[in-house]
Amino acid sequence: MKSMKLLVFNASPRKSSGTTDVLLETFIEGARSSGADVEKHHIVDLEINGCRGCFNCWWVTPGKCIQRDDMDKLLPAISEADLMLLGTPIYGRNVTHYLQKLLERTFVFTLPEMVNRDGETQHPGRVSRFPRMILAATCGFPDTSNFDIVRALYPMALPIFLPAAQLLLYEEGKKQLSGFLQAVRLAGQKITAGEELTRKMKDELIVEYSDEMKKAIVEMHNRYSESLSQ
Rank of each mutant, 00 (worst) to 15 (best):
S145C: 08
D148K: 08
Y224W: 12
Y91M: 09
Q100K: 13
I48T: 08
I191L: 12
A11S: 14
D82N: 14
M84Q: 05
D37K: 12
M4H: 12
M213E: 08
N56Y: 08
L168N: 08
S16V: 13
V95C: 08
D143Y: 11
P142K: 01
I160F: 05
A165M: 11
K214D: 03
L169P: 03
P62A: 13
E47C: 08
V44A: 09
K200Y: 01
S34P: 14
F109A: 04
E212V: 10
P142R: 00
G125H: 09
R185P: 05
C139Y: 07
V218C: 11
R117S: 13
E212L: 11
K200W: 01
T110I: 07
G173Y: 06
F27G: 00
G92Q: 09
I28T: 05
P112E: 07
K215C: 10
I78E: 03
S210A: 05
E172W: 05
R52Y: 13
R151G: 06
D72S: 15
K214M: 10
L103Q: 06
N116M: 14
R32E: 15
M1D: 13
H221P: 07
L86N: 04
K101R: 15
L102Q: 05
E113F: 02
Y98A: 09
G30M: 00
C54G: 04
C65S: 01
M213N: 02
G18P: 07
Q166A: 09
R93I: 08
K73N: 14
K215L: 12
E25I: 06
A165K: 05
S229W: 10
I160V: 14
T110R: 09
F27C: 01
R223I: 10
D203P: 06
D211A: 13
L197Q: 01
Y224E: 09
R105S: 04
H41Y: 14
S225T: 11
S79N: 10
T26N: 03
G30E: 01
P142H: 02
E226K: 15
L135Y: 10
K215H: 15
C54I: 06
R223H: 12
L111T: 12
L74S: 03
T198E: 04
G53H: 08
H41F: 10
S128G: 11
G140K: 04
L153F: 15
A11T: 11
D70A: 02
N49L: 11
R132N: 12
T20K: 02
K202T: 06
R14K: 14
L111V: 04
V127T: 13
K190V: 02
